[in-house]
Computed example of a mutant assay.
Amino acid sequence: MRVKLLRWYLPFVLLAVAYGGYIAISSGNAEALKTEQVEVPLTVKVSHLRSGDHNVVITSHGEVVPVEITQLSAQVSGEVISWHPSFVPGGVVKEGEILFSIESENYNAAVLQAEADLATAQAALIEEKAKAEVAKRQAKNVPSNQVTDLYLRKPQVLSAQAQVKSALASLKRAKRDLDNCRVVAPYDALVVERNIGVGQYITAGTRVAVLNNIESAEIHVPIAGFDSVFLPEDYSGVTAKVTQKGVVNIEREGIIKRDLGVIDSATRMTSLVINVDDPYALSSDMSPLKFGSYVEVNFIGKTLKHIYRLPQELVNNRQVWIVNEDNELEPRTVNVLRAEQEFMLINEGLKDNDRLVWTVPEYPQKGTQVQLSTFNDESKQ
Rank of each mutant, 00 (worst) to 15 (best):
K4T: 03
R7I: 09
F12K: 08
F12E: 08
Y19P: 00
I23R: 14
I25A: 06
A30E: 07
E31Y: 03
P41K: 06
K45G: 10
H48V: 08
H54W: 10
H54P: 01
N55D: 11
T59S: 15
E63I: 14
E68I: 09
Q71F: 13
L72I: 12
S73N: 13
S73K: 13
S73Q: 12
V76D: 06
V76L: 09
V76M: 03
E79M: 10
V80T: 03
W83Q: 12
F87W: 03
P89G: 09
P89C: 02
K94F: 08
E105G: 05
Y107K: 13
V111W: 06
L112H: 13
E115C: 05
E115H: 07
L118W: 06
I126L: 10
V142H: 08
V142C: 14
P143T: 07
L150A: 10
P155F: 10
V157W: 03
S159E: 07
A160I: 00
Q161D: 08
A162S: 05
K165A: 07
A167H: 01
K172V: 13
R173A: 06
K175P: 04
C181Y: 05
Y187D: 02
V192M: 09
N195G: 01
Y201V: 03
T203M: 05
L211G: 03
P232G: 01
G237R: 04
A240Y: 01
R252Y: 05
D264Y: 04
S265M: 05
V276W: 13
A281K: 03
S284T: 03
S284M: 15
F291G: 07
Y294P: 10
E296Y: 10
F299Y: 15
H306S: 08
Y308P: 05
P311R: 11
E313M: 15
V320N: 07
V320A: 12
V320M: 13
I322D: 06
E325N: 08
E330M: 10
G349N: 08
P364N: 08
Q365S: 13
K366V: 12
T374E: 12
K380E: 11
